[in-house]
Nucleic acid binder design. Structure first.
Lengths: 119, 119
DNA sequence: GATACCGGTCACTTCAACGAAACTGGGGAC
DNA sequence: GTCCCCAGTTTCGTTGAAGTGACCGGTATC
């Protein structure tokens, strides 16, 4: 009875999701793609500091989770586009909630960290 | 001009937050403490599978971020309580949004993962 | 022919997180 | 005096994510 998923179970599915969005670059990629679909090089230049290897890995991970779709439009020239799926776009909503929480509580957090560092 | 924080900047503060909540055990600890303040051993038995070392680390991290308060009520016997700060309690809100998103989209994600595994 | 662009891959290293197991010290209970 | 409880600490090992830098084939442009 009760809930469909046990929050305290190690197998809780929210774990997977949280781990994915906690990954270093996921948020950047999703945020960039929220704006519009982009090509590999576009993402690479837009997301400052990301290496092609890590970008590939992140995109592949998001792809296997069904959050991003990879569209190969290559003719004679390579041309690959990445876009959010409906699922990916829907993730944007709670993600923004977290982002907003983070932004609005930055002062408190950094203050707490400094207080902890001093003591 | 524009936003106070640049989402694409590597120094974006939301990164810290996302990384923290992406950590393996943070959600469990916060969720448990949302219920009520708890002692070390209570948390350890409640959060199935966590080792004392990792629990300590997680609690210390949450403490330095100002999300959890450690209260030492030791008299002759050791007695330590952990409780959420106001900040920690406010994090519960966006956290629940993510958890709800995760739970309601689990079928789609696992299906996507299986589809990816088969191909 | 030389150079540059696109969309990556490969080999290697570094680092933090996580985990297992044992141990500690100061009580208290029997 | 022997055991257990609380709140951890210590040591060691494993894992996985991330970073570095070089390289790739095909095309196009000069």
């Amino acid at each position: 009875m009760g809930k469909a998923y046990d929050v305290m179970a190690a197998t809780c599915p929210s774990r997977t999701v949280l781990h994915r969005i906690g990954a270093r670059w996921t948020v950047f990629v999703v945020t960039a793609l929220e704006e519009r679909p982009m090509r590999f090089v576009e993402l690479k230049t837009r997301i400052q500091g990301i290496t092609p290897k890590v970008l590939t890995e992140t995109l592949r991970a998001l792809e296997t989770d069904g959050l991003v779709k990879r569209i190969d439009r290559s003719g004679k020239l390579p041309h690959v586009e990445y876009e959010l799926t409906d699922l990916g776009r829907s993730l944007g909503v709670p993600l923004q909630a977290v982002r907003e929480w983070a932004e609005s509580h930055v002062p408190e957090i950094t203050e707490a960290q400094e207080r902890a560092a001093r003591s």
